[in-house]
Amino acid sequence: MAKTAVTVFRLLTISLGAVSSLSMYAQRSEDNQRSYYAAVFLNRGHISGGATSNIGLFKRIPGDTVWSNMYHPNLFTFGIGFWERGTTRRYYIAAGNGLHRSTDGGKTWCVLTTWKTEEILSVALDPVDSSILYVATPFGVFKSTDDGARWERKAKGMKKWYVQRIIVDRANPQTLYAAAEDDLYETTDGGEHWNQLRVGVPGILSVLQHPQRASVILVGTEDHGVQVTTDGGQTWRSGQDLPQTSFYALRSSGSGETLYAGGYQTGLWKSEDLGRSWSLVWPAPGVEAIYSIFVHPDDPKHLLVGTCGQGVYESFDGGNSWKNIGLQGAHVKQIELYP
């Protein structure tokens, strides 16, 4: 009964058109109207104040060969978000100097956060209520209920505040997961209280909730590979065969049939049994680290991988062959497909 209710709610959120994830785009077919968006930064550019072309939000129309710089927030760019309903579209950039928003397709931007809410490492958007935003920062989770006009720190129950990533359960927007320095935290009341999910290892870098089975959650860790729960965090097991190192990127195909993981000198791995066992898809020779993974919602064999310093790689055959498609030298923290 509960599962049926969740499914109905999920379908409802899709029909409302409130989207914050690519899985929603499985409903769409007008690929020619969509572009790849990449959150990118080049450390060297920030520090020296010199080369700045590889910082910010980059856009690339599918089939095109050029990434164009859409916005330069002037500091590290860690993540992106997107919200759409009807003709309203909002783009968000999580950056070192705050959360940036554009409501005019990227022509103009404003910083929503203040001095007290900096180093935005990740942004999560309520799929239903456009005024509710969450950001992950080194100083905890902050929430806005008025589309960024005011922010409130939400750290009750958290023992450590360094939060690398935050995601919202699209089927139940009051439930969020925060990948923190010491553990994975869950809230079921929109951030008012956080509960430790006791992964068993510290340093949670990334988190993924299965798109169809909400109780399946994967976390990438600093030194212990990928940890997996299939019962909503009550029990955890280590992903078999994966190297015990840092995993920064987790991604699911739209159906959830295939899960992908990548990290520090790991290559790209995949699992087809909900994260229990893993196989190496691509050793990624010469790639220092995989920062982001993208699976095309309409074609699960179409993959993009964002790297640390070696730009973006693309595969059309499920990872058998790869081609570098630009942004060389950049750290590509997130890749999405948006209108």
């Binding site: 590290f76 870098l205 840092s246 920064y248 520090y264 680290a289 640390c308």
Partner: peptide
């Protein structure tokens, strides 16, 4: 720095 420690030294 809010980046990954494994390659921060190199960075």
């Amino acid at each position: 720095f809010p980046e990954e420690q494994k390659f921060l030294s190199d960075e």
